[in-house]
């Protein structure tokens, strides 16, 4: 998931158009995530298995987070969110903070949902505990970008491991693409550490995210593009 780098935005280290490209990448994330979640919803409507429900929730939350991010990035670029970027708590900026929370908490809850799908959690009452604690962490990460990304990377590391195991089980090309897509997202969150020292990693991270989304899009196009027999 893409996030907003306040320091870089204020310092204007990169040309303005680059941030529009980032917003474009996030918009692709919205489309891909919602399309996958729609598949999950259809599967749950027909089969009524918990794994499809959590799969649907996971990508729906991811899509909403991407959408929140697009709104924030565009608002910032259009100059509507100066106070927000500077983290000045003004009442009229409340919706912006709300959207930012949707993004932060949405991403983490999405990863918990997807981890639940792959770890084959059967008892949802135990899963709600994970949701609850993730929500708490999500609220707390508001002021700490590093913590948000590290926690997200931890959650994604489980998903990457599970999807890799699934790939080894079936040696299916699409499963490899899925695993690599999640790995790209994992790197995206992890590289925030390097970005602190080398701002160029802001570009590298977003490029990696774009690759991950293209991989998911490829899988998706194979599913939707399947020829009718």
């Amino acid at each position: 998931m893409a996030d907003i780098n306040f320091t870089l935005l204020l310092a204007k280290q990169f040309p303005n158009w680059f941030y529009w490209v980032v917003a474009g990448i996030q918009l692709l994330g919205v489309v891909v995530s919602f399309a996958i979640s729609y598949l999950g919803f259809k599967a749950y409507r027909i089969i009524k298995e918990a794994k499809y429900k959590y799969f649907f929730y996971g990508f729906l939350l991811l899509g909403l987070s991407f959408l929140a991010n697009v709104i924030l990035n565009v608002s910032i670029r259009l100059g509507y969110a100066k106070y927000f970027v500077e983290k000045k708590y003004e009442l009229f900026m409340l919706p912006m903070f709300g959207i930012y929370y949707v993004f932060l908490i949405g991403v983490m809850l999405a990863y918990v949902s997807l981890a639940a799908v792959y770890s084959e959690v059967k008892k949802s009452n135990k899963l709600w505990l994970f949701y609850f604690w993730t929500f708490i962490v999500g609220v707390y990460t508001f002021r700490d970008k590093l913590m948000f990304n590290m926690f997200s990377a931890i959650l994604l590391s489980f998903i990457v491991m599970y999807t890799y195991d699934k790939y080894l089980e079936g040696k299916n090309k699409n499963r490899l693409l899925t695993c690599l897509a999640f790995f790209c997202m994992f790197l995206f969150h992890l590289f925030v550490l390097l970005e602190t020292f080398m701002p160029i990693f802001f570009i590298i991270r977003n490029s990696i995210l774009l690759i991950g989304l293209i991989l998911l899009l490829t899988t998706l196009s194979k599913i939707y593009g399947r020829k009718k027999k």
Binding site: I47, Y118, G170, N174, I223, R226
Partner: peptide, 15 residues
């Protein structure tokens, strides 16, 4: 058709 798509999705995502 829908079920085939779901099967394909289940396979692709390994769920």
């Amino acid at each position: 058709e829908e079920f085939k798509k779901i099967e394909e999705m289940t396979q692709a995502f390994g769920i």
